[in-house]
Each structure stands twice: as C-alpha cells, then as structure tokens.
Simulated scan of single mutants.
Amino acid sequence: MNINLTGKIALVTGSNAGIGRAAAMALAANGAKVGVNCLRNVEQVEETVAAIRKAGGEAVLVQADVTELTQIDRLVTEVEQALGGTVDILVNNAGHLVQRLANAEMTEELYSRIMDVNLKSTVFMCKRVLAGMKAKGGGRIINMTSVAAHNGGGPGSSIYAASKAAVLTYSKGLAKEVAGDGITVNLVSPGFIGNTMFHATFTTDEARKATVNGIPLKREGTPEDVAGAVLYLASDLASYLTGETIEINGGMLMR
C-alpha cells in the first residue's frame, strides 16, 4: 500500500526545524501541498520551503504566532489562499517547554506562556480548520503530546508535562466530537528525540547520555522517526484510527 497525498493541503505549525521540518518534508515528499509556519527563525523555514520546491513539491511560508487567535486566523487564511483550498491535514507541532522552573518558584506569567504555546495553540488551530474539513467531508488532525504527559517530565517541567497531558485528553474529546464528520484526531508522543532545539536548549550532555543508556533501543530518536508516524496518521492507512496516541520513544515508556 502506497501513501499518496496528492491534492491534499497540509499545514504544519512550528516547522522551522526538528520534528516540524521533518514532518513538512515527509508530507510534501508524498504529494501534499504544505504550509509551513514559524514565529522566529524565518531563514530556517525558508530553507525548508526551498528544499520542498527543489524536490518538486509545493510549499508556502507564513510567519505567525499560534498563541494569538487573530494570527491563527491569518495563518490558515494565507495558507489556504496560496495553496488553493482548505486544509486537509493539520499538524499541531508548535510547542515549547519555555523554561525549567520548580513549582515553588512558578509564576503566573510563565504558567500562561507554557499553557498557551502548547494547549491554547492546539485548541484554536483545530477550531480554525474544522469548518473547512467538515465541508469537505473529512480531514486529518495530528496533535503533538509527549512522553512527559505520562511521566510528569524532567526537573522543572511539570507545567509543560501538564500542558501536554491536556493536549492528549483534549484530542480524545475532539476525536469523538468530529468523528461523524469524517475527521480523525490522533496524537504523536515523542520521547527523547535528538537534533531538536528542545534538547539543545534544555538537556545537558550528561543527562542525554544517561537517558539514551536507559532506552531499550539504545539510541535517541530522530525527527524523521516522528515524521514517519505523522505521515501514517495523515494517510488513508490510518482511516480507521482516531483518538489514539502513537508513542515514539524507543521503548523507554511502554503502555
């Protein structure tokens, strides 16, 4: 069975690097027209767009802050206008730990930033594309949770873990709500994925080595490992799968 997304329009938030970039590249390589997005590091997303176009694909870049509702609306509108139709595949990849901080020191401002970038962005990106998907009679929504949603995360990341757990539970509820419209809602849950800004920013070399030593497959994951699951969930191969989570962690957490 082949994956053929020709004629489909995909939108991947936070696709300037790492998992988002790999997902955008995989979707484009299999025929989708792809909207890529970032808040900062525009030059990185320009490289992604250039690589997709060089390979014969179609892509458009829209810079937007997906924690702001007006910018979410603009993002989707510009992608749909540029690519000639409504979004068929939404990948809510934008997210961030923001900062490691113990709960005893947590501020309301940091709490809101973490919840906004992880949960609020997911909720309102989903809301924005639903009407178009319903009108077409179907669609694919793929949300990003984390192994932290199951185990509480590392030091100073309990609010991040809680936000990702909220994304997981929200996605199950949404999956039930829109199943009758032919829309599936599933999740990808990465474990320790290397070559990402997350670990480059928040994980020491010592912690990285200790974590990898505890992974049954004895390696850190790659963005392409996660992109493969995204591609599957975006395709007809996953047409009877909704409200589910694919764990991509090399066996470090088995459920």
Score class of each variant (00 low, 15 high):
T184F: 02
M115F: 12
T145W: 12
V129C: 03
N118F: 10
E47P: 00
I193S: 10
A149R: 04
L217S: 04
K209I: 05
Y232E: 09
R255Y: 12
V98T: 14
A17Q: 15
L101E: 15
V42A: 09
A23F: 03
S157T: 12
G20Q: 14
L130T: 10
Q44Y: 12
Y170W: 11
I159S: 00
V212W: 10
K176C: 11
A165C: 02
L11N: 03
D73G: 02
R113E: 15
M125T: 13
A24I: 06
P223F: 13
E244C: 04
T169P: 01
I215Q: 10
T242H: 07
D116W: 08
Y232T: 08
E46Q: 10
S235K: 08
S121E: 15
E58F: 00
G18I: 11
L5W: 05
T211A: 10
G191Q: 14
A17L: 11
S146P: 02
F124Y: 09
N93F: 09
T48Y: 06
R113C: 07
G243D: 11
V167T: 13
I52Y: 05
L39V: 15
I215C: 06
M133C: 02
L83V: 01
G95I: 12
A207F: 05
V188K: 08
R74P: 01
P190F: 10
A200V: 14
L237N: 14
I114L: 07
K33F: 03
G251P: 03
G139Q: 03
V91I: 13
D236N: 11
A104Y: 04
T107Q: 12
G137P: 04
N4I: 06
L187P: 04
A234L: 06
R40H: 15
I183R: 09
A24V: 03
N30P: 00
T184S: 13
G221P: 13
A210L: 04
L110P: 07
G221S: 13
A210C: 02
T122R: 10
G214S: 09
V36H: 08
G56N: 12
E68Y: 08
T245G: 03
G214W: 10
I9F: 00
N143M: 09
R53F: 00
A207V: 05
L253E: 14
D116P: 01
E47S: 10
A131P: 01
A148N: 06
S239H: 13
V12P: 01
Y232W: 10
K54W: 02
S15F: 11
I89C: 02
E206I: 02
I215N: 06
I193N: 08
E108T: 06
S235W: 07
L83T: 00
L241D: 15
N4M: 07
R208G: 05
G31W: 12
A82G: 00
